[in-house]
Design a protein around this nucleic acid. Sequence first.
DNA 1: GAACAGCCTTGATCAAGATCAAGGAGGGCG
DNA 2: CGCCCTCCTTGATCTTGATCAAGGCTGTTC
Lengths: 248, 248
Amino acid sequence: MEMQEIELTHVDCGNCPIRHRAVCARCDATELDQLEEMKYYRTFEAGQTIAWTGDKLDFVATVVSGIATLSQTLEDGRTQMVGLLLPSDFMGRPGREMATYDVTATTEVVMCCFRRRPFEDLMRSTPHIAQRLLEMTLDELDAAREWMLLLGRKTAREKIASLLAIIARRNATLKFGQAQGPMEFDLPLTREAMADYLGLTLETVSRQVSALKREGVIELAGKRHVSVPDFDRLMLETGDDTDGGMLV
Amino acid sequence: MEMQEIELTHVDCGNCPIRHRAVCARCDATELDQLEEMKYYRTFEAGQTIAWTGDKLDFVATVVSGIATLSQTLEDGRTQMVGLLLPSDFMGRPGREMATYDVTATTEVVMCCFRRRPFEDLMRSTPHIAQRLLEMTLDELDAAREWMLLLGRKTAREKIASLLAIIARRNATLKFGQAQGPMEFDLPLTREAMADYLGLTLETVSRQVSALKREGVIELAGKRHVSVPDFDRLMLETGDDTDGGMLV
DNA sequence: GAACAGCCTTGATCAAGATCAAGGAGGGCG
DNA sequence: CGCCCTCCTTGATCTTGATCAAGGCTGTTC
């Protein structure tokens, strides 16, 4: 069966990724209509908690705009970010009632939501959806494993470089379809959130970012705006294999 | 649709988890027959590499017996284990040609394999399979995220305690259907493999295991045989929330 | 049973990153 | 404008786990 992107013209919400990514790849009009009827939008403010671990979560959703994080916390308050939701990412788990992570809006976030029950029903009657979700979940699993390598074996400097590379790449992909040229972007995370992502303290993040700046690997305008004059130079700092990898 | 375990009597390989877990949960005889025809077994010796990152991998498989690991390596050789395959776990990715991790047999391993192409075809025509694989993949993703918390935020001692708890629990589940009583098991991993799992060095693993033994949290017979006199006591050392968690 | 190999333990020292502490930059608001 | 608040930076010191090094245990091979 061949992948086939639908015409976006018959989608009233061009941004809504559940159509574009999770369903439309192999869709027909009927399915779209069903999804169309059950979807609704919610907006969360920056800093707002979308769900706490253990909360009942009666919807699944995709991020339309903004950035949200998934994180887990130990008894004594140490927290580790375990997922970063960018536009088009999927959130929630069909077949599970409870949230298993804290979900927090980092910026203002718009989500396209589907009530869980009807979505599950549709999933059962529409094989493409499970297949597409499987693909997306496998991609997430790959990303999680890349992240495990980072957490377990990289130095602080390599962690920072890796995070910058990930954001830069993802940004470039969103904008241009692929990475290219000198890159420039705003960090969507505070130093503390970066630390939670990387398993470091915020002081260490700050120091390493300063070091990369001092050495000309990156340039900073203000605290958040980053430009990367030479992406390959940055990649050298990540510790990653230069050829393989990056399949996601 | 209700889950429904098949009678294992009409399965010639009672152990083969792709039948039992990935397919049989919602199966009919026809599907079983198709799977039956395309499956074959392979045995790998302890220490043998099943696939290197980048290798062409023309099958998917489930572990029938033995233990295998997934790991990733940085340019300079630092390695991080990113997956542990125990009996009934699934390996390989429908829709992808290449292995993205090194897969290594830790003990002798028997796998029940399906050539990738026919399996993918079957998956397309049999929605249950994608749905079941999605469930399994989501479970793996949860486990990976739990693991990220461990790698990013736990101390060496907590890491060791967590690993022991995971193995103890998994072992008890396999044997009794759920955790219970005083637990006893053989470590399936060398100290070095444990270190790769936990993002530590083998020396640190050795020291922390010794410390837990010295303090009576665990008992050791030889280097590998562990018994846990009081599971709750061990859990206290993991740093985890005692109530929540462990949804997988 | 001696020699060897693989795996593990323990000790001494070192260094990366955490922790503790102080203060700076920018932005919103009275 | 001045105040406060959040976020960030930098310095000094401490701690955890890494690194370097030596040797022990167990099982296998000849």
